[in-house]
């Protein structure tokens, strides 16, 4: 039972990290920008769910759709306010500062208007399954659903291919007449939806909590950095492994050890291979 609990918990937590990793990737692919907001948007998924369903008493499905909508709007606002104005000087890395500012604002507003403590998340599915609790399979389902959805988007729709084109060669895509700005905005809306989905689906596992923001921000970034930026496969595999490792270490050695271990592995891996374990070497400098 213990092994099973470690594995199921690990996979569930890992699925959340993977979703945040994908959130990073979707924004990065469209804009070459890493955004500090990924974790905070994830955190908001839980908060929105807790407010809309738990406190306001909306039906689950309405609350869920509204959460997704809010995530999309948030993504667009982030793109418009913190990314678009600094894209012209991408090499100055101003986006690190502007997205950090946005993340801080989200965190602070949540602290003031919601709560600084963890708030329980309502049950989402009314039926009970005998084998696994919904707090375990919901995030995993969300992760699988997101991957399948993205796969369909990229393989079978023209918009999806346009995303891929922009992410591979922005200049050529613009020359070809692709509406780069609109596609980038759409990407950020999509990233916002995936982010809140992560928080919503893991609401019962991790609660609606302000502290999830920085936590998800870091643990969602680890698989992306190690798996190579822009690679969703890397984010998913890395995220799941990270979740399993954390749960195991948590159980046997305690939480502090697992945090320190993840951090040390993260730093060493990046120092050895700054482009990520699966990433390609960087381009010319001169």
């Amino acid at each position: 039972m213990l092994v099973q609990s470690i594995i199921t918990n690990g996979l569930a937590v890992g699925a959340v990290y993977a979703l945040i990793g994908i959130t990073y990737n979707v924004m990065f692919s469209a804009s070459r920008v890493f955004s500090f907001t990924a974790g905070s948007v994830g955190m908001l998924g839980g908060v929105f769910g807790a407010i809309l369903i738990g406190q306001m008493g909306m039906p689950v499905i309405v609350g869920f759709l509204l959460t997704l909508l809010l995530g999309a709007i948030l993504g667009i606002v982030i793109e418009f306010v913190t990314v678009r104005p600094v894209l012209k000087s991408l090499d100055q890395h101003l986006y690190v500062l502007s997205t950090l500012a946005a993340a801080l604002m989200i965190q602070q507003l949540t602290a003031i208007y919601f709560s600084t403590d963890a708030v329980p998340f309502p049950r989402v599915v009314p039926i009970e399954s005998g084998f696994l609790d919904q707090k375990i399979w919901l995030p995993i389902l969300a992760c699988v659903g997101t991957i399948v959805g993205l796969e369909y988007l990229f393989r079978h729709t023209l918009v999806g291919r346009a995303f891929l084109a922009i992410s591979e060669d922005n200049y050529a895509a613009r020359a070809l007449g692709l509406p780069e700005q609109r596609l980038r905005m759409t990407s950020f809306a999509l990233a916002g939806m995936i982010g809140v989905l992560a928080g919503f689906s893991s609401g019962q596992l991790m609660f609606a909590s302000l502290a999830n923001g920085p936590l998800l921000n870091f643990y969602g970034f680890v698989p992306v950095a190690l798996g190579g930026m822009g690679s969703n496969r890397g984010a998913v595999i890395g995220g799941l492994l990270l979740g399993l490792f954390q749960q195991t270490a948590n159980y046997f050695f305690g939480g502090v050890f697992s945090s320190v271990a993840v951090f040390v592995v993260f730093i060493i891996a990046l120092l050895v291979r700054p482009e990520g374990l699966a990433g390609a070497a960087t381009a010319r400098r001169v």
Binding site: V86, L97, S98, L100, A101, A102, M105
Partner: peptide, 11 residues
């Protein structure tokens, strides 16, 4: 929040 606003404004 104010610090963050200031940061964004500066950037």
């Amino acid at each position: 929040f104010l610090y963050a606003v200031l940061l964004l404004a500066i950037v």
